[in-house]
Amino acid sequence: MDTFFDSSWYYLRYPDNKNKEAPFDKEIIKNWLPVNQYIGGAEHACMHLIYARFFTKALRDMGYLDFDEPFTKLFNQGMLHGADGNKMSKSLGNVVNPLTIIKNYSADSLRFNLMSLAAPNSDSVWSDRGMESAFKFVQRVYSVLSEIKLGSSSKLLESKVNRVIKEYSECIENFKYNVGIIKLRELFDFIALEGEISKEDFSSILKLFHPICPHITEELYHARVKNEFISISSWPKCDESKIDNHLEKMEEIVASLRNDILKVKELAKIDKIKKVSLFVAPKWKWDALVIVKEVCKDKPDFSATMKALMSIDEFKKHGGEIQPFIKPAINRLEDFRDLKEFDEVDALNEVKPMLAKEFGVIEIIRAEDSKEAKAKNAFPGKPALIIE
């Protein structure tokens, strides 16, 4: 028969391809079809797919099928172009031989690079530099995960692992591999800094990496977790009770503070920092932030926020500082959604030794106790600073 005819109903034959009495058994088809996910080029839309839909609907009308559509979900994959931006072609000499790449860099590195290039439904361009970068990263993953101490995970690491399990799983299910890889890389970098991880979390990390880097993860799983195949183990489950938004937000604040110090150092062209003065936001700004979040929960509203704050005597005392406070608070509202009030002085004292090691003397001052003009710039979770 004509290939177009056969390709229009092959999905009905596959589940029952040994049947010599009929094209397919209705009961078997009820168990297997319709197809959950179809992946193919966009060019199929006006050719194969339209014929497959016609056959399905015709067979439905004839009583052979009890569903309307052959494929419940459609995903059109993009095309990988050569480094010159053109479609790969022998005549153009821009073809990349995967066997050569695998020999030089490994299959896992190639897979990691391809998944990182772009969204799977977008066209992408091959890059030798990208391949080198992927190879180095996969080598680092293997090295760190081969040697990291298996013991216990910090509360912060537990939170990050479970958050990534949740978000990365959603990325995989929705073909957002490149976005998922970004989350995975960030988590791995944090794990490398921690230097210790629980065996349970370690196992979860290997499983998250496994769809992209199946070879090194299989080897590491056998060597460090259990002598079974990771490929047939269960996918890690997110324990949402271990996700601590506030703790992660505090960690972001410390990282942001460090970046702010480095940025000021660069702008001021200071070779070596002798002292950093950190001014912590006063209590009234934390109270005001609660009102800003409440008033602007549906949409940003400067006027309504100003009215709400100035109707309270406590905030009237700070009249001249209210307006400069509201605008950045509204602009950065999403940054503050999960932020709860905490003692910034205590939090900064905890990381003070680490900051002092890098930047010298660290002085932590409550803004209300200082006459420095800069102190008025202190914001909840974002101290103002002076560098000497």
Rank of each mutant, 00 (worst) to 15 (best):
D343N: 13
L117C: 01
S8Y: 12
K207W: 13
S7I: 03
D260S: 15
K352M: 08
D338G: 03
M47P: 00
L247T: 01
L114K: 01
V276M: 14
K103N: 13
K166A: 07
A223L: 15
A288P: 01
N178Q: 13
M250P: 03
I387W: 10
W32A: 02
L208C: 06
L257H: 11
Y11I: 00
L33D: 04
F190R: 03
K285Q: 11
I270N: 10
I39E: 15
E21F: 12
N331K: 15
E314V: 01
M88W: 11
K371P: 14
K26L: 02
N104H: 05
A304L: 07
K166Y: 14
D84H: 14
I326S: 02
A329K: 03
A58S: 11
V225M: 10
I365D: 12
F209R: 02
L339N: 07
G41Y: 15
V280N: 08
K327G: 06
E21Y: 12
K87L: 12
V141H: 09
P324H: 06
D313M: 00
E173G: 10
Y51M: 13
I205A: 06
R163M: 02
R60P: 02
D338T: 05
K87H: 15
G82C: 05
P328L: 07
D201T: 00
L145K: 04
A58D: 05
D343V: 01
K316E: 09
M250H: 12
T100K: 13
F75P: 06
S256V: 04
K274D: 11
K160S: 04
G93R: 05
I182S: 12
R337S: 08
M1T: 09
F188L: 07
G195L: 07
F336G: 00
K237F: 13
S303N: 08
